[in-house]
Design a protein around this nucleic acid. Structure first.
Lengths: 341, 341
DNA sequence: CCATGCTATGTAAACCTTTACATATAACGT
DNA sequence: ACGTTATATGTAAAGGTTTACATAGCATGG
């Protein structure tokens, strides 16, 4: 019982006085074994404290119970909440989660390949829109995979994300409802497809409100705090200013707020600002940031569920799952001031 | 090469015209094999794209190349940065990281036990001060383990953390240097040992400045935002108020700031506030929070290094590694106002 | 030139499972 | 009562690796 080496299936078989095959069946196909035998086996398992050796099992099955999760930055607050969803779903199905972060470095990605090639991971969750592995020949050998947040570039991989267009639409519609017409979109169309979809939502909202093109101001940054600050600087050089800044993500919104405050403006008195993502600090900003919430835990849960389904069926039921993002109204939006301009 | 099933050591052996034992040795004990043979083997490996099957290897060795990391809450911002350090160190030594979060639920912890018992993880990193597994009999079978942040209750497990006493001392010394005498400590001595050490730092600093006991106000909360807010409410009911709030962590500090602002006070004009941890949002608070930074990535790196050492040597070189926390001066501290009281 | 020891390699067992196949027993229909 | 089918269990191979042990070649020292 408190033996030094863990019990094997043979120990159980000996004690239960059956063959090892029967023990294995009692565990994994209980209906195939007689009630009385199953009882004996279960007792023997309890006595020995036996647990199936996952290594041996995976070796025999040619498939592990690990899922590799690769993200560019595991420190990203957007990441950790999704991780919770992934983890919960995986664990409840007997799977474990293997973490990898690439820091956008292809070399790093390659190192994780090892876990896949060596059969240590049965499936792959990708947080980045591109395959982290240089070799495109790899795709042939890629295990069942699911993308998170945005479609994976090379295609053929189902993904779970948020309806970015609808989310952005909610933000722009709020601003329009508050009376704004001249709304700037501070975007980042280069790095991520999801971001360009948010811009599509912006344009659609402006279209729907019949706001002419010359009232639309689009600044393309790179999704960082600094780029938000920079956007403000640049826009202030033009003759016409927006009354509201709709930002492609919260980071950009934070930058915009910093830029506006540095110039002495009041938010939302002088300018309204919206973000997208609802990162944890959004609520602690002054003013707290009105933004679009990503249902992060749900995204993780769905992504893992889809992957597990892929793992057992081979075919994905859906190729794209888009969850509904919610508008979170806080204090960074109000009606445009009539005094100014 | 682009075969459907991955190459095995036998494929390599056949092509290199040697035995599988030689291939294995060429890979893992290169000095034991003749130069010419090693060359042949390496070429064959390149041709086949062979990677060692980790399952088979672990099965044979009775030890895996995975480290299980168990934390109560993987969404905690304190956690994710440490994870980066852990991950980097592990990967550079060929280890992978398995994630588990218990949500302080013993049942959950037990589920992760499975990964250990079944040989899927060779070592354990514990983020919680107590063993997450109910059975204390387990300790006998516990694999090499390292605690992070604070000592593990049951003892015998080395840990890596921050010098909480010295860190707290820096905070209280700053406040005293600014001229504060009546400094409240908003603590949380119940949940974590690290927190009670921070209080020790507070007391030591007050002692050193010869500040009498009746000027010391200690409120014991539970380390949450809400408990910080509550502390303010309670202290305002007393006749004497502090001029500064030294908080056991940033969450509490955020709560204190919310409470003070709700009463219309200015920070740091009316009251100074310090935190501990330097969570990501600390810099975005208004005013930005003066706090003590935990060297998180370094903690992770050291913890993993210690564990890997443990794994190979069996004996830990050190039983406790305390890193130096740094004071981060921002805008929530100033001299006490002379006007008031 | 032989005994000895060292170096490089091969053979085969072991690690622990799962499962195809074989076998034995029981049940059933005619 | 007998052939057929279903049910329950056992036997043994296979999965890919590492390594103790065996072997062969070769140099070294006397």
């Amino acid at each position: 019982m408190s033996n030094s080496t863990p019990a094997t299936i043979e120990d159980v078989a000996r004690i239960a006085n059956v063959s090892i095959a029967t023990v294995s069946r009692a565990i994994h196909m209980p209906e195939k074994v007689a009630n009385s035998t199953r009882l004996k086996v279960n007792q023997a398992i309890a006595v020995t404290g036996y647990t199936t050796n996952a290594m041996a099992r995976s070796l025999r099955l040619g498939r592990s119970n690990m899922i590799l999760v690769v993200a560019p930055d595991i420190g990203d607050p957007n990441f950790s909440n999704i991780l919770i969803g992934l983890e919960n779903e995986a664990r409840s199905h007997g799977y474990g989660i293997l973490i990898g972060h690439t820091q956008n470095d292809a070399q790093r990605g390659l190192e994780y390949l090892k876990f896949l090639n060596s059969n240590q991971a049965a499936g792959l969750i990708l947080f980045t829109g591109i395959l982290p592995f240089g070799h495109q020949t790899m795709t042939a050998r890629l295990p069942p995979s699911v993308g998170v947040f945005e479609p994976v570039f090379n295609g053929g991989i189902p993904y779970v994300g948020v309806d970015d267009i609808a989310g952005a639409r909610k933000a722009v519609d709020l601003l329009i409802a508050e009376g704004h017409r001249k709304i700037a979109f501070i975007g980042d169309s280069r790095t991520r497809l999801a971001y360009s979809r948010r811009r599509m939502g912006y344009e659609a909202g402006m279209d729907a409100a019949d706001i002419s093109a010359n009232l639309r101001i689009v600044f393309e940054g790179d999704g960082t705090i600094e780029s938000g600050r920079l956007a403000v600087e640049q826009l202030f050089m033009r003759d016409t200013l927006p009354t509201a800044f709709m930002c492609v993500n919260d980071q950009t919104a934070i930058g915009v707020m910093i830029g506006l405050k540095a110039r002495g403006y009041d938010i939302p008195g002088d300018f309204s600002v919206t973000g997208f993502d609802d990162v944890p600090q959004a609520v602690f900003m002054t003013p707290s940031l009105t933004t679009i919430r990503q249902p992060r835990t749900a995204i993780g849960k769905h992504a893992m569920a889809l992957l597990l389904e892929l793992l057992s069926d081979g075919q994905p039921a859906e190729t794209e799952i888009l969850l509904r993002p919610d508008l979170v109204v806080r204090n960074s939006v109000s009606a445009p001031s009539r005094i100014r301009r």
